[in-house]
């Protein structure tokens, strides 16, 4: 299955988040995570690609992208964690949940998943201080309700 996967991160994220996928493409998701570790610029490129897909108006595309993000956070190491833990990426998640930006046209399903992921990272990656800072800000602004 690994040999059938496209090469580039761009091609892999397109496959793993294709709105026409009937179910989650776990081979594709794992292939993206593997590839981002192999490339020098893999982590910053991966977070840019993920941010764009997570901001998709197509719910299924966004949900798949959040699943890729979740899976990569579990499977990848410090280089990827550090990129996700920058405001450069976190701001893109904040835009999706904030009514001042994309929040009013985003489904509750997508917004909830983003907040759940961020909360889980505040517990699992307490040294990633910017994640905790961003999450506390969302709580203060009333975006996190429970």
């Amino acid at each position: 299955a690994a040999d059938m996967e496209p090469e580039t991160l761009e091609a892999r994220i397109n496959k793993a988040t294709n709105p026409l996928n009937k179910d989650l493409d776990w081979d594709g998701i794992n292939a993206f995570c593997e590839q981002l570790n192999k490339e020098l610029e893999g982590p910053p490129l991966a977070t840019r690609l993920l941010a764009h897909k997570i901001q998709s108006p197509q719910e299924w595309e966004a949900i798949q992208a959040l699943t890729v993000l979740e899976s990569c956070m579990k499977g990848c190491g410090k280089r990827f964690h550090d990129e996700v833990g920058k405001f450069r990426f976190l701001n893109e998640l904040i835009k999706v949940v904030s009514p001042k930006y994309l929040g009013s046209r985003t489904s509750e399903k997508v917004k909830s998943k983003i907040l759940e992921l961020m909360y889980s990272w505040t517990l699992g990656l307490p040294h990633e201080l910017k994640i905790s800072e961003a999450y506390q800000m969302l709580k203060k602004q009333g975006i996190v309700k429970c």
Binding site: E41, K95, A134
Partner: peptide, 15 residues
């Protein structure tokens, strides 16, 4: 484009 040891970042978005 980011260099290999790029530690630069933006500010937290103010919502």
């Amino acid at each position: 484009t980011a260099s290999f040891h790029d530690d630069s970042d933006e500010d937290l978005l103010n919502i």
